[in-house]
């Protein structure tokens, strides 16, 4: 019922989590952590171009690029020793990458709480995941403003 405002890819992920038993939710999170693509060299060689997300308990860095087509491309990095953080990064990458700026900005900030992860992941983790989304949306907003100052 709440899912209709979500972009289809993200809605599908949220549904998948929400309808899986708790044990499988962890397994899913692990799978998303493994699906996070490696950084392209322009970020891998210049990690300072990624913005840190200090709300996360583990190091997490993100850059959202707004292309000429107004589509958003996400670049996220988190250490291998932090699979939970990587898992959230993987979810957002799978759910948001390639969407339009408007679609990304329309994602509600509480989307992570709809994945029924509170039972298996600590609340602070979820806050870190929301913070990641918040950073992405802010970066997109800033680039929109630069692209057209009246926006």
């Amino acid at each position: 019922m709440t899912a209709e405002v979500l972009p289809p890819a993200l809605a599908e992920i949220v549904d998948l989590f929400a309808t899986s038993p708790p044990r499988d939710r962890l397994e899913l999170l692990l799978e998303y952590s493994q699906q996070l693509p490696p950084l392209p060299s322009r970020y891998a060689e210049h990690p300072e171009r990624l913005e840190p997300v200090p709300e996360c308990q583990s190091p997490l860095f993100v850059a959202a690029e707004l292309g000429d087509d107004r589509r958003v491309h996400l670049f996220v990095d988190a250490p291998r020793e932090a699979p939970t953080t990587r898992g959230f990064a993987g979810i957002f990458h799978a759910g948001l990458d390639g969407l339009t700026a408007d679609e990304v900005l329309a994602v509600p900030g509480d989307v992570t709480s709809r994945m029924a992860l509170a039972e298996v992941v600590s609340p602070l983790r979820l806050r870190g995941a929301s913070a990641l989304l918040g950073r992405v949306q802010r970066q997109v907003r800033e680039q929109l403003a630069t692209a057209s100052p009246t926006a």
Binding site: L26, L30, S58, A82
Partner: peptide, 9 residues
């Protein structure tokens, strides 16, 4: 662990 998925990796 602090990261509850680490064991699984």
């Amino acid at each position: 662990d602090e990261d509850i998925l680490l064991y699984e990796t």
